[in-house]
């Protein structure tokens, strides 16, 4: 039997309370007061993201298991060759690094070379259209922090937006709300590259019309703003010559494979060493080689 006179608050009252509570939340969010609360919720949501991610991951694993030996051998061979080339380059690099430090010392300027990195895997999860935010599987338990720069093997990918204990949201450099201070590698011209919302395009809105810049120029991080360490490649300049334009407009194409990579590098730009990873020894696939402290 259903009780006849159960008193529940009327929907009108409920609505006013809820609307008020939402507005309070929004106001608090403006002041960024709710981070612990959000972290709590996000930890609760994380299994859901893993659930969505798991079929994709399983398919990938399946493909790996059943890939032919010949292909694996091929891949192995090419990787070995690449590694040798990179090693040779590194030999020279360490000598150059030492020289650079000596010269800097002569000039009495401080300059930090070398950051620590950790590999994070992308979760196959879509958040919202029109915003370029991805989720990775390393969070504050692994020492990730908001504002942390994120790279891949080819260039800058973006920065960490929010962290939860086990995952982090990374905003890509092509997001319309993101801007990154860059400089032209050829002549040191500094400017800002803004995201456009398209995955393969950055805009350079703050160039004067007589700026010394050409298509093909490499843009590297300038280190201004303090978020991104100096000297990482970001994009190459492309000219956007339209009909009836006297001056070419310049845009840039990101070097990082933003829509294709599955693994990203979180970079520590701080002097202190990164914290020990929980259970690193017990997880065989946690790629411990990530902690290549340079």
């Amino acid at each position: 039997m259903k009780p006849l006179f159960t008193k529940r608050p009327s929907p009108n009252f409920g609505l006013s309370v809820c609307v008020f509570a939402s507005l309070v939340l929004l106001a608090c969010e403006q002041k960024a007061l709710l981070t612990p609360f959000r972290e709590l919720f996000a930890s609760a949501i994380y299994p859901l993201q893993q659930l969505v991610n798991s079929p994709v991951q399983a398919a990938r694993k399946f493909g790996e298991v059943f890939s032919s030996q010949a292909r694996l051998l091929d891949e192995n061979e090419s990787l070995r060759r690449e590694q040798m080339l990179l090693k040779v380059k590194l030999l020279k690099f360490s000598a150059l690094e030492q020289e650079n430090l000596r010269l800097r010392g002569l000039l009495d300027t401080s300059f930090k070379l070398g950051e620590q990195v950790m590999i994070a895997e992308l979760l196959a999860v879509n958040l919202v259209p029109y915003e370029q935010v991805v989720v990775v599987n390393k969070g504050s338990r692994f020492g990730a922090y908001p504002g942390q720069p994120v790279m891949d093997a080819n260039g800058v990918v973006g920065q960490v937006l929010r962290v939860t204990p086990y995952s982090a949201e990374v905003i890509l450099i092509t997001d319309p709300n993101h801007a990154i201070p860059v400089q032209v590698n050829r002549n040191g011209l500094r400017t800002i590259a803004q995201g456009t919302g398209q995955i393969d395009k950055l805009s350079l809105p703050y160039l004067s019309s007589n700026a010394d810049i050409q298509a093909g120029d490499l843009l590297v991080t300038s280190g201004m703003g303090g978020v991104f360490p100096q000297g990482y490649p970001v994009a190459t300049v492309v000219a956007d010559t339209g009909q009836g334009k006297v001056f070419a407009k310049f845009g840039a194409a990101p070097l990082a494979k933003l829509d294709r990579n599955r693994e990203l590098l979180l970079v520590w730009n701080k002097p202190d060493p990164i914290p020990r990873v929980p259970g690193q020894a017990s997880t065989p696939k946690g790629s411990p080689a990530d902690h290549a402290a340079k």
Binding site: R8, P11, G14, L15, V17, C18, V19, A21, S22, L23, V24, L25, L26, C28, E29, Q30, L34, F37, R38, F41, A42, A44, I45, L48, L127, V128, E131, V133, L161, R162, E169
Partner: peptide
Amino acid sequence: GVGHAWCVGVSSDVLTGRMLGQHALAYS
């Protein structure tokens, strides 16, 4: 009811990386 909708809305906000309260307001 509206209260449940509000709670679900907050989780939706966290899920999709919105500001807390956006979905909560709309859902309620």
